[in-house]
Amino acid sequence: MIMSVDENFFTRVYEVVKKIPSGRVTTYGAIARAIGSPRASRMVGWAMNKAFSYHEYVPAHRVVNRNGMLTGKHAFPNANTMQELLEMEGITVVNDKVTNFEEVFWEPKSCW
């Protein structure tokens, strides 16, 4: 079976996201840089919207925008799920924003 460009890209994104430690967050842009596609943060967002259909668990709740905002919360079962998952890991969220973003930010290592 030949994997499409999108499937390969999405798989690379998911492999990075699966490495985000519990209690930490990263950004769409940081993931894009880590996989060697620094201008593809929007496509990383598309991949995160599809993460629930991936064959392995992907902790999508740990991916936020560059300001720490929970911009991907619409992809979860309800409007509060992303925040609840982050709070269960000790991350404080107020008004859809990680309050101590700089402290809990995780920079992925380049993978490709």
Rank of each mutant, 00 (worst) to 15 (best):
59 P>N: 05
51 A>M: 05
87 E>H: 04
68 G>T: 06
60 A>W: 09
70 L>D: 00
81 T>P: 00
83 Q>R: 08
66 R>E: 13
29 G>K: 09
30 A>N: 12
81 T>K: 09
41 S>T: 00
66 R>Q: 11
28 Y>H: 13
20 I>P: 13
55 H>D: 07
39 R>T: 09
82 M>C: 04
23 G>W: 04
68 G>M: 02
44 V>D: 12
77 P>S: 12
37 S>K: 15
49 N>A: 13
37 S>Q: 13
29 G>W: 05
88 M>I: 05
79 A>H: 08
57 Y>D: 14
44 V>C: 08
37 S>W: 12
23 G>Y: 01
40 A>Q: 12
16 V>H: 03
31 I>A: 07
39 R>L: 07
47 A>G: 13
87 E>I: 07
32 A>D: 01
78 N>T: 14
74 H>N: 01
50 K>Q: 15
82 M>P: 05
27 T>G: 07
37 S>L: 10
17 V>G: 14
20 I>D: 10
63 V>A: 06
74 H>T: 00
25 V>H: 04
65 N>F: 04
80 N>I: 02
21 P>V: 03
64 V>Y: 11
26 T>P: 07
55 H>P: 00
58 V>M: 13
70 L>C: 10
38 P>Q: 08
20 I>R: 06
83 Q>F: 00
45 G>F: 06
49 N>S: 13
86 L>P: 10
46 W>I: 09
19 K>N: 03
19 K>E: 14
79 A>I: 01
21 P>Q: 02
81 T>E: 09
66 R>A: 09
41 S>N: 10
71 T>A: 11
48 M>D: 12
38 P>M: 04
16 V>A: 03
35 I>H: 05
27 T>F: 02
26 T>D: 09
29 G>V: 07
69 M>D: 15
69 M>V: 14
18 K>N: 03
46 W>F: 13
65 N>K: 02
28 Y>N: 10
44 V>G: 06
66 R>H: 04
57 Y>H: 14
31 I>G: 08
78 N>W: 15
28 Y>A: 09
61 H>V: 04
16 V>C: 09
57 Y>C: 05
43 M>Q: 11
18 K>G: 01
38 P>R: 11
35 I>W: 01
89 E>K: 02
37 S>Y: 15
74 H>G: 06
65 N>M: 01
70 L>E: 08
79 A>N: 03
85 L>A: 09
29 G>L: 04
69 M>I: 12
87 E>M: 15
23 G>V: 02
63 V>L: 08
15 E>S: 14
17 V>E: 09
74 H>Q: 09
71 T>G: 01
68 G>H: 03
18 K>P: 00
42 R>C: 06
63 V>P: 02
41 S>A: 03
69 M>S: 14
31 I>W: 12
69 M>K: 15
84 E>I: 05
85 L>I: 10
53 S>A: 11
16 V>S: 03
